[in-house]
Design a binder for these strands. Structure first.
Lengths: 239, 239
DNA sequence: CGGAATGTTGAACCTTTTCAATAGGCGTGG
DNA sequence: CCACGCCTATTGAAAAGGTTCAACATTCCG
């Protein structure tokens, strides 16, 4: 795991607070949130935040950075379950069996808020909004996975890659970054694992979209030229 | 929705209690659980328990029966997310946005325990094990989906169908029913939607497994002849 | 700067899909 | 109770989309 480092900033002042804990909250209640996060840590690129099988003690909130969540199956192959950006919570699969069922690795230097499970339990006993919020968060993760599985099943390569790019852009936008001009922090292989395509197909499809004039690629840098065409493309290119 | 009908049986006497709410519990606490379920309803074959978009008021526990959970996408196509049997909880995706994000239909006459959200909130405020249990349940659902997505992505048709049959058998076994001799309550098309294959491939693959002497099919009735061969088959038949 | 990792591109191949035709099952009504 | 019709399942053949293998280009990092 990464080295500790004190990062000054309370939840109440954090710019991504409402992404982590989307609940209506009074100023008075906000102090409850502030004690939720005891430590913050840095995780450097390629370092693990936690590994599949590690004991579950905390969930984590991404303050800054970019990470991937993955499972390794019995044959040792890695399957990417998702990419994680600021304001997103990690480790939610740990509640099930008191150990993490997936691994999280930083794809870019990241800062992570540590939220101890014990503290969640303590606080939520008296502060009920937190408990409801956690329900919502866990349920949202279920919904997200369901929606993902519907996309991945019924789409062809072009639709998968288009969806992937649009989704990334949208998430950058929510974080006040450019929606149509961003760096892919992951490799083609990781994209492929996520959307269920081989690395070759990912590469070909990206190039195809480029040749269609929808995007522009400079290695890891992606520029969405015509976001509307990309969206239309999604619907019109039927399997 | 289905007609109401009083079904006498407390959680504390229910044979599938530990499937619904897997928590250690004292006899005294058990009374807490008993008040959790206020009503029980019957849902006949082909009837909906709830529909995608319906307001979220309750989660449900299957007492007896067999159901399917599905999403309808924007093009009106149905994607099956899962099949549900006794002791399983339904409606967990409702917490996210206070409405159900999926629909549940009975594939066989079923009896369902209704657990009102309000009541969960009330009880869990004083009875903390319930709250922890709900966390676990929601998290388990996330883990289940993750594992599902890893299988569905990396497996060929034969592996998918084998996994599907083994999983069903295992779940029947946990309910003291035969592990290797059961009725498929769903159509081939519904199997296909679930494992991401066309109806034709499902049919062909089932027949192939039959011709290999691993299973025996009589329309909806499945007999697993050689469960070990089916399991080996899973590993040995590489993509 | 040089080696290793990552990405691109082509061609053959293979699995699953698609289309089409037929067979089987189930339920309703005469 | 049987017949009819509809829905579901099976099977074949052709097609398509993605994968695999292989060679080469580019980028990254020490």
């Amino acid at each position: 795991m990464a080295e500790d480092q004190k990062i000054k900033e309370k939840c109440s002042d954090c710019s991504v607070r409402e992404l982590c804990f989307p609940m209506e909250i009074t100023d008075a209640d906000m102090t409850q949130l502030d004690v939720l996060v005891k430590t913050k840590i840095k995780v450097r690129k390629k370092e693990y935040l936690y590994r599949q099988g590690d004991e579950f003690n905390s969930i984590y909130a991404v303050r800054v950075g970019f990470l991937k969540t993955a499972i390794t199956n019995s044959q040792g192959e890695e399957k990417i379950l998702g990419f994680n950006m600021s304001g997103e919570l990690l480790g939610l699969d740990g509640f099930a069996n008191n150990k993490y069922e997936s691994s999280v690795v930083a794809l870019h230097d990241s800062e992570i808020c540590v939220i101890e499970k014990n503290r969640i339990d303590e606080i939520s006993q008296t502060f009920h909004p937190l408990q409801n919020c956690l329900q919502k968060i866990l349920s949202t993760e279920i919904v997200r996975n369901n929606n993902l599985s519907i996309s991945m099943s019924s789409m062809n390569a072009e639709q998968k890659i288009s969806t992937f790019l649009l989704n990334l852009g949208q998430r950058f936008k929510m974080r006040n970054q450019s929606e149509n001009h961003f760096i892919l922090r992951m490799t083609r292989s990781e994209i492929g694992s996520y959307v269920d395509l081989t690395i070759e197909t990912v590469s070909r499809t990206l190039r195809k979209l480029e040749s269609m004039g929808v995007i522009k690629i400079h290695s890891k840098l992606i520029k969405i030229i015509d976001i509307n065409k990309l969206k239309e493309n999604l619907i019109s290119c039927q399997t």
